[in-house]
């Protein structure tokens, strides 16, 4: 067990998300009434308050809205990659999430860059979704 980065805290609402990443899919909640797809997961559709929610498999694609480079080390598990990037990504289906962009040098990151999800096993239970530039 040599994965040193922080692991997610899984609760009853997020468990299907992490089951999805373990299966190599980005799954998020979709409202059966207004069709809003949202993240992080919760008990109610934040757009129309419906409880009629299902889990959908997303395209795994999105684009960079912004990004930062962490020069200050807040987590020992990231020490080997310091300075490391975190991007704010808008998924094609609408939700926002923070993620790391892998396979691209930090100085080549750009707003509007197209990304696709990749799935990196961390432990037996957890697979981390990160993103890379869409491959031509």
């Amino acid at each position: 067990m040599d994965y040193k980065k922080p692991l997610p805290g899984i609760d009853i609402w997020s468990r299907p998300f992490w089951a999805g990443t373990r299966a190599g899919e980005l799954r998020m909640q979709c409202c059966g009434d207004c069709r809003t797809i949202f993240f992080p997961p919760g008990p109610v559709c934040p757009s129309c308050q419906s409880r009629n929610l299902t889990w959908e498999t997303l395209s795994g694609r999105g684009e960079v809205l912004s990004w930062v480079i962490f020069h200050q080390l807040y987590f020992k598990g990231f020490a080997d990659e310091q300075p490391y990037n975190v991007a704010l990504v808008k998924l094609d289906e609408g939700p926002l999430m923070y993620t790391n962009v892998v396979g691209t040098d930090n100085d080549k990151l750009a707003i509007g860059m197209r990304l696709e999800a990749v799935f990196e096993p961390a432990t037996d239970e957890i697979t981390m979704p990160r993103f890379r530039a869409v491959q031509p």
Binding site: P6, L7, P8, P40, S66, W67, F75, V86, Y98
Partner: peptide, 21 residues
């Protein structure tokens, strides 16, 4: 925190993300 697995943390980082945008 929700985003700690991706190394995202701190009020400064939230403002840095807004600033880049």
């Amino acid at each position: 925190s929700l985003w700690a697995p991706w190394g995202f943390t701190s009020p400064g980082a939230r403002h840095a993300m807004m600033t880049r945008r």
